[in-house]
Design a protein around this nucleic acid. Structure first.
Lengths: 127, 127
DNA sequence: CCCTTGTTTAGATGAACATCTATTCAGCGG
DNA sequence: CCGCTGAATAGATGTTCATCTAAACAAGGG
């Protein structure tokens, strides 16, 4: 229901600066500010439950998943799942909307792509 | 000074299964086992200090950096830097060797690439 | 052989975090 | 309007983690 994108991520995917050579992280040293912005994003996916939640949501038919589709995959209580979803949402990795009784979550593909771009020296094949 | 590669990472970069379509994470749901293997790797880079350390090492001239090159960049004590380097090393992201008085660290590029591949739907342009 | 410098290990401490139970909020149907 | 179900919030608890100081280990130079 909210949307937030971090500055460091805005620049990562664009064709602005030296995007063709290699991963920013391997190309030139991260500044303290950049690292401070990136670390929370990696922290958000640095948990087995959240990693699976993100994957389940991203892979789900129609690109979105109801919470009730997710809780069954884990041996955890509802509030715990809700907590992890909140962490992913606050990191900007997913977003959600309430439609009637159920709440639907979908992944924010751009953020994931940009994280990937920061890590890996790969071709930026954007359409 | 040790080397360890995780099974889930071995498969990620190879041309084995569906690597051309999209990121594994977005393609099909991560199993509990896969998530449990990946999460610690992301946890290793989910810290501003370690992220900068990794970047500093990877970018350093000659591909390797002495600990004395690294400590100056942070407002932290030696033991703290050493601790973070140990975390990165145990995750397999970096490796080190003692040469005389100094200890040199270098990045393990493959692991980083494979993490990138898991996150991002990008072309695997490997030579 | 001791002293100095570079690096790691051990142990302690305070903050952050994952999880739970209990409660509250939001819609829907009788 | 009341009760039911899905989902989030509040508060508590045990664990993990980042950081420090103190000590140990490694290598080299008088």
């Amino acid at each position: 229901m909210s949307k937030q994108l971090l500055p460091v991520l805005e620049a990562a995917g664009t064709g602005q600066a030296g995007q063709a050579c290699c991963a920013p992280l391997v190309c030139e040293p991260l500044s303290g500010t950049e690292a401070a912005e990136l670390a929370p994003l990696f922290k958000a996916i640095a948990d087995p439950v959240r990693l699976r939640l993100l994957s389940l949501i991203a892979c789900h038919e129609g690109g979105e998943a109801c919470v009730c589709d997710l809780t069954g995959a884990f041996d955890l209580t509802g509030p715990t799942i809700s907590h992890h979803l909140k962490v992913l949402r606050q990191a900007g990795l997913i977003d959600c909307e309430r439609r009637g009784t159920w709440v639907y979550y979908w992944a924010n593909p751009g953020v994931l792509e940009r994280l990937s771009a920061i890590l890996g020296p790969r071709v930026t094949a954007m359409a």
